[in-house]
Amino acid sequence: MAIIARKPYDFPPADSVEHYHGDQLIYMCWGHHLMFAAPFMTMASPKTSFGEFLKTALEPIIALDPDAAKVDWTKVEWTRRGKAFKPALDKSLQDNGIVHKEYLRFDTPGLNTVCG
């Protein structure tokens, strides 16, 4: 569907990637860990390796959850755009195909201390 307007109506998004000085946004959702009320918005350079990104951008903010220390990143189940996804931890975000404003969900079966 297209908008109904009296004149041509076309404006750029207010958060396209060129606004982020070389970085990009990545949304991260930890499945069944609702102590965190919403998915996180994180920011990183597309050249960062996925593993490095997890360590620097994600681990500090999920550390509050009692399960955080027990997460084994090699065993995490990832979902991207509704499909299972296998990121390579040593490759960059870019090389993993993770674009600006990508949403990744990770599940850690067996870890469910608070929100069983």
């Binding site: 569907m1 297209a2 908008i3 307007a5 109506y9 076309d10 404006f11 750029p12 998004p13 207010a14 958060d15 606004h19 982020y20 000085h21 970085d23 946004l25 918005m41 920011m43």
Partner: peptide, 22 residues
């Protein structure tokens, strides 16, 4: 959004602005 994507792409999302440094 699907009905009027041209409108909602403009949204001033505060978190997405904060991270731009604006």
């Amino acid at each position: 959004f699907d009905h009027e994507p041209e409108k909602y792409v403009q949204a001033w999302l505060p978190m997405n602005q904060l991270t731009q440094g604006t």
